[in-house]
Write a protein that binds this DNA or RNA. Structure first.
Lengths: 136, 136
DNA sequence: CTGCTTGCAAACAGTTTGCAAGGGG
DNA sequence: CCCCTTGCAAACTGTTTGCAAGCAG
């Protein structure tokens, strides 16, 4: 592992991710960065997002429809992807539920289970509301 | 929804997926198809995999490292991705475990939960064996 | 100074799409 | 016959990479 040198860009990317409640795509991060660093390049954004993810300082979320999204590290939690609008919401379950799933899985698997990711699919509150007003 | 016309290619793609225990990528399917249809094009493979997935006759699995893989439809089950070799294994849990997770999630989410996908990360039996022989 | 980091542009991988020719209903 | 499906190649999207210049240590 190489040692990392400080960079304004990387610091700001991390700061943005830590502070936002969204789960932005690389492109969203890029757009946001340009407000502060008008000349920043997409390549730099990708490089830093990957560096931060490798260091475990942020999380990569791979969604079904292809896109990758990024999230701050925090309490273990799951994600709900809205099948209407694609938004990613957080969903908290207890640590117990979390561990239990790995334990159950280990019992029926011949290899070793280290962790897991759960993605729920559903319809977010906002889209539910729209649905209702369109088909009353 | 348009009506589908029979095609040898699509039938064979489905047959292959139904019968294999692997979770092939689009490219793997393509390579396999060429044995039977030497002139088949990648485009056709993609078109048919997507058609089959849209009709719900096969399943798309999105893995972390970017690739999409395909699986036959069968009893609800989960997947284990080996972090060493990238292989995707099946993992059976009970229907009860399956439903329970959605129910738990619904309780702490404001929208609607329809289904979920769980991906476990671990090390498959084969890689465990290699690990052991390299670091005894 | 040294070499990690940047902006830029070109390269890439995986997937989709427009088109004319082919074939099922 | 009609129009869905195919093979082919080009287009696209999201991501990575090579390079020379810039800047932190």
């Amino acid at each position: 592992m190489q040692k990392l040198k400080y960079s304004k860009q990387r610091a700001y990317i991390k700061e943005y991710l830590m502070q936002t409640e969204e789960h932005p795509t690389a492109d969203t991060v890029y757009l946001h960065m340009r407000k502060q660093f008008p000349n920043i390049s997409l390549g730099t954004v990708y490089r830093n997002l990957n560096l931060l993810a490798d260091m475990g300082e942020i999380i990569k979320i791979t969604t079904e429809n292809g896109g990758v999204r990024f999230d701050k590290v925090s309490v273990p939690h799951y994600h709900v992807i809205c099948t209407k609008c694609g938004k990613v919401d957080d969903l908290m379950l207890t640590q117990k539920d979390f561990d239990e799933l790995d334990k159950k899985a280990s019992k029926s698997y011949s290899g070793e289970i280290n962790t897991h990711a759960v993605v729920f699919y559903g319809v977010c509150e906002d889209c539910l509301r729209v649905d209702k007003s369109e088909n009353p």
